[in-house]
């Protein structure tokens, strides 16, 4: 499903991150994604952080332009795409950096969530106050500006009914070494082109992240040796993670 939406608000979350709110809500499952289109600049996958919003970290020309949009500006959306999370019981939501954005909708739709959040500095810890109103929140920052000084893995393991992990792939690999594969779900990111399972660009060990994921159970990663190791670039060439 393709549609154009208008920006109604551009909220600055941190020096690098903004949330853009649209004039329309999108029905989706947590973990599904949208392809966001800016004419002449490109189209990239984002998970909704609000039913009518995405949270974007600046990392290049496309996200520079996206975070500079003003109320009244138009952008294109295609989706929702992919498979999201199954129902999670008493989940620990483990987010690193802008990966925290992926967990917000999941948190709102989960019973008794707890939060394990990590970032370089306090400014990377999105929605801290809001998450505190939903459940216990533990934080680790590399510079110690919020929570414990250290890495997110320093806060693990924790007791929970299930686990959802979203963040840089190396962080997810580190988390996986201490979390139970049968009750943990990981959000995999790959360069996407068609995003509907045709072109094969977003392969991770042969599974197409856009249709087989982007959410994968840990047990599945057992058979996906490319996770944490390599991905295909825009041309298809392998690059190391």
């Amino acid at each position: 499903m393709r549609e154009s939406v208008r920006v109604i608000r551009n909220l600055v979350e941190s020096p690098w991150t903004n949330t853009l709110f649209f004039d329309r809500e999108i029905a989706c499952e947590p973990g599904q994604f949208m392809m966001v289109w800016l004419p002449r600049l490109g189209e990239k996958p984002f998970t909704l952080s609000y039913p009518n919003g995405i949270t974007v970290k600046r990392a290049g020309a496309f996200t520079d332009a996206l975070t500079a949009l003003e109320p009244g500006d138009t952008l294109g959306l295609r989706g929702p795409l992919g498979r999201g999370y199954p129902p999670l019981e008493r989940p620990a939501l483990i987010g690193g950096g802008v990966g925290i954005a992926e967990l917000r909708l999941l948190a709102l739709r989960s019973e008794s969530p707890t939060f394990i959040l990590g970032g370089r500095t306090a400014e990377e810890i999105l929605y801290f106050d809001e998450f505190q109103s939903l459940g216990p929140v533990k934080v680790a920052t590399e510079d110690g500006s919020l929570g414990e000084k250290g890495l997110i893995t320093d806060l693990l393991p924790v007791d929970a009914g299930s686990y959802a992990v979203c963040g840089p792939e190396r962080m997810m690999v580190a988390c996986r070494s201490v979390l139970p594969d049968d009750r943990t779900y990981y959000a995999i990111e790959r360069y996407m082109k068609c995003a509907v399972g045709l072109c094969g660009q977003c392969t991770c060990s042969g599974l197409r992240v856009c249709v087989d994921g982007p959410i994968f159970q840990g047990a599945k990663l057992e058979h996906m040796p490319d996770f944490g190791r390599r991905r295909r670039s825009k041309s298809g060439r392998w690059e190391k993670i």
Partner: peptide, 27 residues
């Protein structure tokens, strides 16, 4: 590298065609 995104226009209802313009990206 082939074309920038978007490289596809997907059918909105069953039976519509797909358009693609990947333009032969290759390693």
């Amino acid at each position: 590298m082939g074309n920038e995104n978007p490289v596809v226009v997907c059918p909105e209802v069953e039976g519509q065609p797909l358009l693609n313009s990947l333009a032969l990206p290759t390693q």
